[in-house]
Simulated scan of single mutants.
Amino acid sequence: MSLIIPMKSEREGAKLPVYGTEGAAGADLHACVGDEKIVLKPGERTLVPCGFSMELPAGVEAQVRPRSGIALKNGVTVLNAPGTIDCDYRGEVGVMLINLGDEDFAITHGDRIAQMVIALAPQCKFHWAGGALSTTERGEGGFGSTGVGA
Rank of each mutant, 00 (worst) to 15 (best):
E55P: 00
D88A: 05
Y89I: 05
V76Y: 05
T84R: 02
M96W: 04
S134H: 13
L56Y: 03
I118G: 06
R112I: 01
T84S: 14
L97M: 08
M116I: 04
Y89F: 14
W128F: 09
I98W: 04
I70V: 13
E140W: 12
G110I: 15
V95Q: 06
Q123M: 11
T84V: 15
A62M: 15
D102W: 01
T135W: 02
L100K: 09
R67Q: 08
H127C: 05
S68W: 13
E103C: 08
P82A: 07
I113Q: 11
V78K: 03
L97Q: 10
G101C: 03
E103G: 00
D111Y: 11
N80M: 01
H109G: 07
V64G: 00
I85V: 15
H109W: 10
T84M: 07
A58D: 14
A119H: 03
V76H: 06
T135C: 06
A81V: 10
L56I: 09
P82D: 07
R112H: 11
L100N: 12
Q123A: 10
G59S: 13
V117F: 01
G94P: 00
G142R: 12
G130M: 04
G94I: 09
R90G: 00
G101E: 07
A114T: 06
V78G: 06
A119L: 01
D102E: 14
Q123G: 00
G75P: 03
N74P: 00
C50E: 08
F143C: 02
D88L: 01
Q63K: 10
V95T: 04
G110M: 10
G131N: 07
H109P: 10
Y89Q: 04
I107V: 14
Q123S: 14
G101T: 05
P66D: 11
R90L: 01
L120M: 05
G83P: 12
A129N: 12
F52Y: 15
G91R: 11
N99C: 09
M116Y: 02
E55I: 08
I113F: 14
L133P: 00
V60Q: 05
G51S: 12
Q63L: 13
G142F: 03
M96C: 06
C50R: 06
Q123K: 15
A58F: 09
Q63C: 03
M116W: 02
M96E: 06
I70Y: 09
G51N: 13
P57I: 06
A62C: 13
A62Y: 10
G142T: 14
R138I: 05
